[in-house]
Design a protein around this nucleic acid. Structure first.
Lengths: 251, 251
DNA sequence: TAGTGGTCTAGACCACGGT
DNA sequence: CCGTGGTCTAGACCACTAG
């Protein structure tokens, strides 16, 4: 009896430690993508090749690829292969129309405040988690332009301890999310948002070059990431009269 | 040679006609859910039972259930079973805070215009598809309250021919989407949206009982459905100062 | 302990894409 | 024609839930 119990505990601990086979393949491929070994547009090894490489069956390989598909890292093409795709930014987050369409030199992002240590601001609308409040806070602020017109002010906060070396990091392609993915291997896995139409206060009016009291779209977002420690809080102020905010969802 | 070609055509037609086994199970279960045979909270037959009922393997049954999971019709519980869940309304669509939370008698929806034949309105922001423009148009308009306060005006258009008997249909639980699902077996499968902060015009100000020129959140949505013929165009005007619009996205 | 869903194996045949 | 991904079979063992 005693032996049996010990055995069961051992089995339990072992099973908790063990990484599932399909998770292993999934994480292996994901890290290769994040590291840029497999670039956007590249084809992954075929399912049969992966079977041989890892000595597993196709069912398991397909399960791993299905997960990567769900996460938006790859797309599959019958008869051709699985290809790395640009990860969907449409994770329930809204994009300013013109930021995706206008791919010429039209779009510009300017730092108003490069990442610095700061206090947790009362401007943050969505509740800041308890752990975050007990950490120093890292803050940065940007202004986004379409052509010469400022269309969005973006304020971001997060726990300093979650990204220690972030203060001195150069942004990859000027993108915060790309930086998180490629330098820290952290992905956005979810978000909650609140949207309001407000009147522009003096500061926003000045930055976005609109009249005070003009209608302004205020979006409060809390981003959850693959790192449990890192939650990103953002407040966006969008001048939507020429460039509405848009998004799509399918499936 | 000639015979071979005929044979291949036959095979092709056959394969096009044939419903995949997992699709068959998927559609079977989906229709039972939509018809209310399996209600929200009910457990579906176990995977092994479905195997026996349809004389197929568990792999195939699981594929069918995975699809239903992705579509949001069921949730799985290890060791218990697969349960019908309230289908996610969060298909990229935003819900007014308070409409989901306030489940008491607090929320009210009032028709300003019951479904009628109308013209395609120029108020529709997103492009109306060519086929739709050539059909008569069905229109209805509602006003949504939290308590006694009007918080959202909702205008809806769609092709009359896609839902012939809709003009005389009673809404299920006062919900348009529930009506589509339970009476027509049509589900929302995607949407695109545009959001703007605007100043309230006289009409919206009157209906929402706010001042003219107060900031108003204007959401334009195009819903795509499981019926290729039916696309729904909506324009929402939200008074967000007390009840912001919110949504969440995960995975 | 019985029944459920979760993972995995070792095959098979098919449809699609390009040579 | 061959290699790719898509579907499907017939098993096996495991972990979770509940009586």
């Amino acid at each position: 009896m005693y032996v049996q119990v010990k055995f069961r505990i051992f089995v339990y601990v072992f099973s908790v430690m063990k990484e599932l086979k399909y998770r292993h393949i999934q994480n292996y491929l994901k890290s290769k993508i994040q590291q840029g070994v497999f670039k956007v547009g590249d084809y992954l090894p075929s399912e049969n090749e992966l079977c041989m490489q890892f000595s597993i069956t196709r069912t398991t390989v397909r399960k791993a690829l299905d997960e990567l598909l769900k996460e938006g890292f790859i797309e599959k093409q019958h008869g051709k292969g699985s290809r790395v795709r640009e990860r969907r930014q449409s994770l329930g987050l809204l994009s300013v129309k013109g930021f995706s369409e206008a791919v010429g030199g039209n779009v510009k992002t300017v730092f108003i405040q490069k990442p610095v240590l700061a206090k947790w601001d009362t401007d943050i609308v969505l509740p800041v988690s308890y752990d975050d409040k007990n950490s120093p806070c890292c803050y940065f602020e940007r202004l986004r332009f379409v052509g010469d017109r400022p269309v969005m002010r973006e304020k971001n906060w997060m726990a300093y301890i979650a990204l220690p070396s972030f203060l001195n990091t150069e942004f990859v392609d000027g993108s915060f999310f790309k930086t998180l993915s490629q330098k820290y291997f952290i992905e956005i896995i979810g978000s909650t948002q609140e949207l309001r139409a407000e009147s522009a206060d003096r500061n926003n009016a000045r930055l976005l070059k609109i009249e005070e009291d003009a209608p302004l779209l205020h979006i409060s977002i809390k981003f959850f990431t693959s790192s449990a420690k890192l939650i990103i809080y953002s407040e966006l102020y969008c001048h939507t009269s020429s460039y509405p905010v848009s998004n799509s969802y399918f499936l």
